[in-house]
Design a binder for these strands. Structure first.
Length: 112
DNA sequence: CGATATATACGTCACGAGCG
DNA sequence: CGCTCGTGACGTATATATCG
């Protein structure tokens, strides 16, 4: 999952073009599509709707804040894991090179 | 030592994926 | 189809490094 995502972002940054979904539209805190009436009877109703919308928004923001924190934590762990794997593979590589060298030496002396 | 550059962490928005 | 969740991108704040 991470690998695919990262490859994709690396590609787009390399070519310099942005995916179409990057284009943003300005947004406001007030939910769209709410019809405002000037009559006092409806104003109370509107206030309730507006309060509910605000409450929902705050809940969503809180949840998203926590989700973003969790997402970053997860990503950091993933990167740490990859770095660890790199270190292990580098060590293995070093060991194998040494082993190959030793075997070559052995073979040379045998044929002499 | 202050100005500037770079790194890091965070909150928010927009979007796609997947679920009921 | 509407809703929630995970995540990339962006802007901002704070910390740290570099330079004159």
């Amino acid at each position: 999952q991470w690998i695919l995502v990262m490859k994709e972002s690396a590609m787009t940054s390399a070519t310099g073009d942005m995916p179409s979904y990057q284009i943003r539209t300005p947004s406001s805190a007030v939910p769209q599509g709410v019809v405002v009436s000037t009559s006092p009877a409806n104003q109370h109703g509107f206030q309730q709707v507006a309060e509910e919308a605000t409450r929902k928004r705050e809940i969503r923001l809180l949840k998203n804040r926590e989700a973003a924190r969790e997402c970053r934590k997860k990503k950091k762990e993933y990167v740490k894991c990859l770095e660890n794997r790199v270190a292990v593979l580098e060590n293995q590589n070093k060991t194998l090179i040494e082993e190959l060298k030793a075997l070559k030496d052995l073979y040379c002396h045998k044929t002499e």
